[in-house]
Design a protein around this nucleic acid. Sequence first.
DNA 1: CTGAATCCATATCGATACTG
DNA 2: CAGTATCGATATGGATTCAG
Lengths: 131, 131
Amino acid sequence: MSRAPREAAAYPATGNPKIEALVTDLIGRVADKWTMIILEVLDEHGELRFTQIARQVPGISQKMLTQTLRQMERDGMLTRHVHATVPPRVDYRLTPLGESLGEAFCGVWLWAEQHLAQVETARDAFDRRKE
Amino acid sequence: MSRAPREAAAYPATGNPKIEALVTDLIGRVADKWTMIILEVLDEHGELRFTQIARQVPGISQKMLTQTLRQMERDGMLTRHVHATVPPRVDYRLTPLGESLGEAFCGVWLWAEQHLAQVETARDAFDRRKE
DNA sequence: CTGAATCCATATCGATACTG
DNA sequence: CAGTATCGATATGGATTCAG
């Protein structure tokens, strides 16, 4: 399967279907709503414990917070420091890998912010056409 | 709710919870796996009809292709041109808005490609620790 | 050819209760 | 405090069938 050459690519396609599948899978994983918000919160505050993150992410359930933090830890996005105290205390902090993802997402975040109104207008127009 | 100032922000936070909710919702919508692939395919080929896109996106079901294309059209990402012929022919093409999203996603795409191995390593290490 | 409509399995997620 | 475990509602997505 050969790709036609082109001068301006929006995506750096490798031409390798297997690699691209892995890449899209990875993006699907990290592009999760909670992941992005936690990424932002941790980047902003440096280091936070469980309940502090929960407070900074309104609407998240305890289950999803735990789950998302575990996934991010597994993916190497953050470190988890358990203090041997009682009551327990766990600190979360972004790794350089996590920070780099945050920077990469910055472009999408900016895009969404800048084009929010435009999308809203497009939706209204579409819905009015179909009414 | 005031935010502490910081010198290097990974995300351009507005400080407005409502706006940020809208932004994350929009990101959640467009960060969809099929949306990103279709965006890439259309950017690469310029204009394609329904079955041509289907062939370029291996694994997608007809239902998801239709659904995703509708959503993208509603969001103003692409235009849909129906030819009054029989059998019917429908051409899809990115709008400037769609192209701009593709460019914004380029950074994430690159990040995933460049850090794929690193994430893989982190996962292996995590799984081995827990085994 | 380009869909829309339906059925159905699975995945996701919130709520709740319980634990060290 | 920081989870784990479980249940049930809802969303998601593939397969299939039908239609203009």
